[in-house]
Design a protein around this nucleic acid. Sequence first.
DNA 1: AGTTTGCGTTAAGAAAGCGTTAAGATGGCG
DNA 2: CGCCATCTTAACGCTTTCTTAACGCAAACT
Lengths: 225, 225
Amino acid sequence: MKILLVEDHPNLASNLFEYFEPKGFRLDWARNGVHGVELAKNQSYDLIILDVMLPKLDGFGVCNKIRNELALDTPIIFLTAKSMLPDKVLGLELGGDDYLVKPFQLRELESRINSVMRRYRKIEAQSSIVVEDLIIDRNICKVFRDNIPLVLPPTAYKILCLLGINKHRVTTFQEIEDYIWGDDIPQSSSLRTHIHTLRTIIDKPFNKALIHTVSRVGLKVGYDD
Amino acid sequence: MKILLVEDHPNLASNLFEYFEPKGFRLDWARNGVHGVELAKNQSYDLIILDVMLPKLDGFGVCNKIRNELALDTPIIFLTAKSMLPDKVLGLELGGDDYLVKPFQLRELESRINSVMRRYRKIEAQSSIVVEDLIIDRNICKVFRDNIPLVLPPTAYKILCLLGINKHRVTTFQEIEDYIWGDDIPQSSSLRTHIHTLRTIIDKPFNKALIHTVSRVGLKVGYDD
DNA sequence: AGTTTGCGTTAAGAAAGCGTTAAGATGGCG
DNA sequence: CGCCATCTTAACGCTTTCTTAACGCAAACT
């Protein structure tokens, strides 16, 4: 995690260094806006922490240059004493991802960094569920095993999704029924049939079974444990 | 923009409705945590605004269920009177995207919503959308395929825009209906007919189909994957 | 050993999903 | 007022998908 800190107060800057470096973050420090833009241009950062009141070029100007001239979409967190509404709004509308008012606690900043980064990463690598050689891409509602695309009927697909979500544990039959049908559950033979359909498609054509029954309890995906 | 508001204070809820509905946001209101989870499961939202202190299931519990049991990564903004640090940290670490302390100004919430959404749906900001050989120019409301200009009726055009915005994923029928008609949705046969119109114009004259149905779920644009 | 229970398997009918078409309803505009 | 584009509704039929019921088999009980 490489962070660019643009901040003119040496005290605050050194506090941040002391807090974040031991946690494995790597920080670069720019003490004015122009220097900040320069670094953003030449290095590549995972996140930028930006004070608003800065010598030479203020934080809004830096943000603007980064977004429009450099066309970078690196997450930006504003960090400032200005708590007035118009400033917050301006910062966020200019392309900032968060706006934290001084004084703040470092722990909160850390959480907000984590939150922003989590979001940023998730967008890069879309949310799909991976179980061994099985991939469930819930964005496009498609399933692959061994990179071979498999076609599932809707209900079988839903069951598989639920199993994937709970891949670390057994999903009970009861949970599956609730998840699929809600209040209007058909006879239990229906679920049995759907599970059979699911197995026929994702297990039969392959060597190792991925779906395992835990008698009287439910199902679990994954290779045998 | 469809937002789920989980909040037990009718006053605040109605303030939010008054502020955001005229701006074109569509809000659903859940007045307790359990109802909130229920709605999140059955509908699809662009954003969830979550109070922390709620009857039945508190905001942290709701967030937890949404992230872990439903495995949805819909952005969540916490909204609460609790300004204590541990709460903020918990909210953000549980998978929240932002944490706003009451009392707050609606304008700030709006900015934060915009900021979160900008990240989440990058494409919405752009005015023209490109999908394979299809170009949707939303400035001039015109569509080209293979550089051939195509003329679409308004509703079909709207549907195509939505599919384009979500080109990386399946757009549910439900989302399409919400997007086009809002609260006053006609019978489902109407949507079927519009989709047929759309296909007749942008797929029929060409070799490869761009619009694909995902049974019981929705539509996706793009060549087969 | 016989019976029960849980669950895999199969086949068949019922229901639902959706593409397609045509006909009426609506609303803007000359 | 009437034309035209557009939207909505209804009907049809092909498919896919769901549900049910029946059977088999193995493990667990009596």
